[in-house]
Amino acid sequence: MTLDPQLILDSLPLIAQGLGITLKLLLYSALFGIGLAIITLVMRISGRWYLSWPAQVYIYFFRGTPILVQIFIIYYGLPQFGFIRGSILWPILREPFACCVIALGLNSGAYVSEILRGGVLGVDKGLTEAGKALGLSSPQRFIYITAPIAIRLSLPAYSNEFISTLKATALASTVTLMDVTGVARTLVSQTYAPYEIFIAAAILYLAFAWISYVALAWLEARASRYVKKGN
């Protein structure tokens, strides 16, 4: 069982053909997730039970179940219902790519919403009080005081969540998508060199995770430039 480094190198460009789909999955799901997270966050902190309850059920379900199962429910499960096959959404829900984006986005949205909530709760209460004392309205306090600080506080955790979403895109290969993992699995079934090819795929993911990590760390440093660093 010797590892063939040449084969790893040779398979990298082949596997990289799947990179486009992986990146598209990641980008769309992450954006969809952030959108959902903001809506869910507003519902949760609205103080109205009929808004905060559905938000909490959504978060509870998507954080408590495996992503793979969520993908299967949406891709394989939804067509069980005739009204879905008849609906205008069917051309979308029939596509594995769209189903993966929906599943990954829903999953990520649940986590990001909790991260943002942590950020909002981490904002010093005294700052909103100062805003009140200055006569700022509640939306003004949220937009100009709470939100910018909460976003900074959320960035480190978001960085981890973004990388989790990147890793979760690999599950798209289970519903026939030819992302990096999908291409790698096909190559393995042809060459039967699992070590080399899967390691090559892992290297691609690691490289991309590292790039994301550095980019988000830079963003965090920029957002934190007003925080005290010694004297």
Partner: peptide, 9 residues
């Protein structure tokens, strides 16, 4: 950093 499913495979 690597996807769980890749490690599993």
């Amino acid at each position: 950093g690597a996807p769980e499913i890749i490690i599993l495979l």
